[in-house]
Nucleic acid binder design. Structure first.
Lengths: 228, 228
DNA sequence: ACTATTAAAATTGTATACAATGTTTTGTAG
DNA sequence: CTACAAAACATTGTATACAATTTTAATAGT
């Protein structure tokens, strides 16, 4: 493998592999192996892993090293709730700069999403779906907010990997086209409502335990198990 | 100095010094000196500095090392705009859990703010003002949002250090008392409006250059300078 | 065959060494 | 005295060494 990668390049490669689930939640990330794989010393790798840990993509346990973060239900709920709060607010600022060239750009992205869906290229689909959301956020002109949302999108990818049903991803993209239509019309209110519904839909597609599930009924569980 | 500090403890000490302006924007943070001061190797110090850099408290220029971030006007505007967008949204969730004990806790904090103001303890005042905002955010129950706001509060401290007028901080705290009254009444709408106004007021107290200032009129500048 | 204990291997935590780069000082010429 | 050049110094970048810890494997006893 190419031997002359910057820390930033290594960061992006690892992040991509995680977001696209080549490295699934729970996967261990030993410094040695990564060091060897990228042809750089452990020092550089540690730096990258620590960054990923601060971004909550990876967890580092003392003396046990890094592994891909396996989000809890609490985290899943909080991240999705955050997106539901934030992404709609940015729409007025997005519409202020929205132009035909933006419209074309995002339509191309949706086309790529559909292609990935048809070809069952899960990796590309996940990547493109997240990209749609954070590139949109960038249009708001507030890079502080945009970066925060970008981070939430990456975290969402992990959340869907853990709690998503089989349709959590693909359901998602079919709608993006309709959303661009709304933006083209310049309809603030409808666009905000659409975005909120879109994200609520993603959240509700997650298999989050209801409060009842916390008290597992062992009697019921084991009385029915010997039937199969 | 005590020799057995964890990385987290070092992080907090440096952050505190920056937020309270013992280390002002632009101050250099040489690894050697910090290493010596904390009695730990450069490795630990670097880790802490890199974390602070990701949080935008510090900037690291390649081969030049770390210095306390000196926010640009763009950054100042974006951080304050973000707070104006976010902090009011959390108020409904805060009110859901708001209780007498919370009320008492925050009133104590305001009392401490007033005391710091009287005693002209600038450091304590800055710290308490930020704390008021992010402890409030924590009450929302969404720790993802709360952490983000905490970070924005720390960054705001740097922004006020650079662009603040002399009253940017003290003006700020006189009002916090009135805000608790509103929360006690449980008035969603007024509380949200108050918070928005409060933050807009802080933003407008900053000495941000207007667009005209970008083209400096040197002729005018130097023709009037010899008068004094 | 199974568990507990111990030894071996692998992995992370921390310090340090040295190279690469940047900054300051010193010295010299004009 | 100033401007420029060169050397001395200081600082960061990266790799590596070794200690501390965890994980895995092997062994012994029931």
């Amino acid at each position: 493998m190419s031997n002359n990668l910057s820390d930033e390049a290594i960061y992006k490669k690892i992040l991509k592999s995680i977001v696209e689930r080549q490295l699934p939640p729970g996967a261990r990330l030993p410094e040695d192996k990564l060091s060897e794989a990228f042809g750089k010393s452990r020092t550089s790798i540690r730096k990258v892993l620590q960054r990923l840990a601060l971004e909550r993509i990876v967890t580092i346990a003392p003396n046990k090293g890094a592994q891909v973060n396996r989000p809890t239900e609490k985290e899943a709920k909080e991240v999705l709730d955050s997106r539901i709060m934030l992404e709609p607010i940015l729409i007025p600022d997005i519409l202020k700069v929205w132009s035909t060239s933006h419209s074309n750009h995002f339509r191309k992205m949706v086309a790529a999403e559909k292609k990935a869906e048809q070809e069952e290229d899960q990796s590309a689909l996940i990547q493109l779906t997240a990209q749609f959301h954070y590139e949109l956020a960038q249009l708001s002109g507030n890079s502080v907010m945009a970066e925060f949302i970008e981070q939430l999108c990456y975290r969402s990818s992990l959340i869907i990997a853990v709690f998503g049903s089989r349709h959590s991803v693909s359901c998602d993209c079919g709608d993006h086209d309709a959303f661009i239509d709304i933006l083209d019309k310049g309809d603030h209110d409808t666009a905000q409502k659409w975005m909120k519904h879109h994200l609520v839909h993603i959240k509700s597609s997650l298999k989050l335990a209801t409060s009842d599930d916390h008290k597992i009924n062992f009697k019921h569980l084991f009385s029915t198990m010997d039937e199969k």
